[in-house]
Nucleic acid binder design. Structure first.
Lengths: 248, 248
DNA sequence: GCAGTAACTTAACGTTGTTAACTAAACATC
DNA sequence: GATGTTTAGTTAACAACGTTAAGTTACTGC
């Protein structure tokens, strides 16, 4: 009975080849810039071979998208998280923005493209709500922790609403950067500055009492690697101002 | 010499017909959903006739985009603007979100689609930076006023950076709503709530001193701090009561 | 040995954006 | 008034697209 398994393995191997080729093309060319024919050519198959594995282009890229969500989770939930609830939220925000900058085309596809309503698959059902695999759930969990710790004003109780607001804030920074950073009619400040400003302003706006600062602006203090855990990896890979990858 | 003028008028009439048809289709179908052939069919011309007036599809929609920016300005800079700098910023934010909700497809095209770099035209040059016609300039102007009035913390001095942050915050709310509001794996709060929360949080995060709230909804008191002599009334260019309402 | 399964190919359909070549009418010039 | 030029608009065509229908071919279970 090892035969069936080998066949399945072979099939999923070419399936993976398709996904790999599609991902590579998609990252550099964007959704509309990728054609089924190009994907097929890259793996030296005929264009229609793809349709054995995926119903259509949309499903192929939805599959990529699904994988990207896992990758987002990896980037957002890096091992070391500050214990301070606020700093933890800041870290999550930073990581999120870093993801968007590293994979701008994926980000466009995941969060900036209005998709036809896509029903949840069974696998997806398992993922939703688990902070270990669902980045939004992680954010919500961190928000709930901050609420419970009494960091926020007492009117701020709806963790869902707060999470959506924080998400929207970092999403605003990054998506605007992706879509408009080339536009000459705005004197764009460096992305890093905009990101830190946004995190500073939103978190500050949620706080119960204003942070007791001597004279050092919170912004500068937060940007420093003095944050708990000391993240050297992020230090050597600063967020680039422009689209980093070989974007076309 | 009236001949030449008549010809030009005729030409610009069919040009406008193309733009009108394209806009109508674009608003309902989105950028990729509109084909040059459909536009041509709608105005009962041959597809290639469009190419007499526009270099390609991109330029046609860039022209639409240009018009949309004027419309954005109309919506954002509605006649009555609060005199209080903070409330004015809040109003601008609300109006911006309203624009996005009324014209989601335009919004997608204007702010959510990475465009090939588009050099500024001569007409554009005139527009940029004028608060009367450029919504971003209006925002920046309002931010500068708030800074001058002493509403913000003293570290907050870069009007450009603040403007970009505020813009990103409302853009985050609306663009996330457009792209993801259908997604079932988030328990979305009502858009209005998310918008108000975002404006509340970001403006609050910028303020010098937290609004002294008895129990009244927070930011009503936001005007209080700082300048006792109120805002510099010699502020040039207070929001014009009569706006460029070139209805179409 | 034979029927069945299934991964993959070839050929084709209808659509897309865009170009080349052409028509026809209005104009300027002699 | 014939002539040549300009130009808005047309027809035909190209290459590329997503996708389907109808094969082909190799392996498997019986």
């Amino acid at each position: 009975m090892g035969v069936k398994e080998r066949r399945e393995r072979e099939k999923s191997e070419t399936r993976d080849k398709i996904l790999d080729a599609a991902r590579e093309l998609f990252v550099t060319e964007g959704y509309e810039g990728v054609s089924m024919r190009k994907v097929a050519e890259k793996i030296e198959y005929s264009p229609t071979a793809i349709y054995v594995h995926f119903a259509d282009k949309n499903e192929l890229f939805h599959e990529l998208c699904r994988e990207d969500f896992a990758r987002l989770q990896e980037v957002v939930a890096v091992a070391e998280m500050p214990t301070d609830p606020i700093e933890r939220l800041r870290q999550i925000g930073r990581n999120y923005i870093q993801f968007g900058m590293r994979f701008p085309n994926h980000y466009v596809f995941m969060f900036m493209t209005p998709h036809p309503p896509h029903e949840l698959h069974v696998e997806d059902q398992e993922i939703v709500g688990d902070p270990e695999v669902d980045a939004y759930a992680l954010l919500k969990w961190a928000v709930e922790a901050a609420i419970k710790a009494g960091c926020f004003r007492e009117e701020v109780q709806d963790a869902e609403l707060v999470s959506q607001t924080l998400w929207a804030s970092v999403h605003g920074v990054i998506s605007l950067n992706i879509a408009k950073c080339k536009d000459p009619w705005v004197e764009w400040r460096p992305l890093q500055d905009r990101a830190e400003m946004m995190l500073d302003v939103t978190l500050r706006g949620l706080l119960k009492s204003p942070p007791i600062e001597e004279k050092a602006p919170l912004l500068a203090a937060a940007a420093r690697p003095g944050a708990p855990g000391a993240r050297p990896s992020e230090e050597e890979a600063p967020i680039p101002a422009d689209l980093p990858t070989e974007e076309k």
